[in-house]
Design a protein around this nucleic acid. Structure first.
Length: 111
DNA sequence: CAGGCTATCCGTCACGCACG
DNA sequence: CGTGCGTGACGGATAGCCTG
């Protein structure tokens, strides 16, 4: 639990953490990519790569939010399933008791 | 108290699917 | 067929708990 949620704020303000600004050629293990910090970049990128970078940033931002939403929905779904389990367990318990009572009645009649 | 372990959250990547 | 979206998988960060 106990998560600050500060990255949400920074995303909302457009203040993108440095580690998220990576080279556009994906496919590498992301631990390697994490190591490639902007500080290592010596010369400014050619102008056309700026558009690519922007596109990538937009994509990352959208995906970030999509992942958040996806997790929220999944949590909700799991909660629903847990509720359903609880209800069915109660129903089952009730039915077992009812069956037991009916069996008792039937047995006493048979005597 | 330091260090290990575990649970949880998050961002990113990769992939499959639906749509235009 | 290209594009965008949803989601599983992965690894990093952080907090809380336990133990020596």
């Amino acid at each position: 639990m106990a998560v600050t949620g500060d990255e949400t704020e920074s995303a909302a303000t457009g203040d993108i953490p440095a580690y998220q600004l990576r080279s556009p050629n994906s496919g590498l293990a992301h631990s390697i990519m994490m190591a490639a910090s902007p500080g290592n970049m010596q010369s400014p990128p050619p102008p056309h790569t700026e558009a690519i970078t922007l596109k990538r940033e937009v994509r990352l931002m959208k995906n970030r939010e999509a992942a958040r939403e996806c997790r929220r929905k999944k949590k909700e779904y799991v909660k629903c399933l847990e509720n359903r389990v609880a209800v069915l367990e109660n129903q089952n318990k009730t039915l077992i008791e009812e069956l037991k009572a009916l069996k008792d009645i039937y047995c006493h009649k048979a005597e």
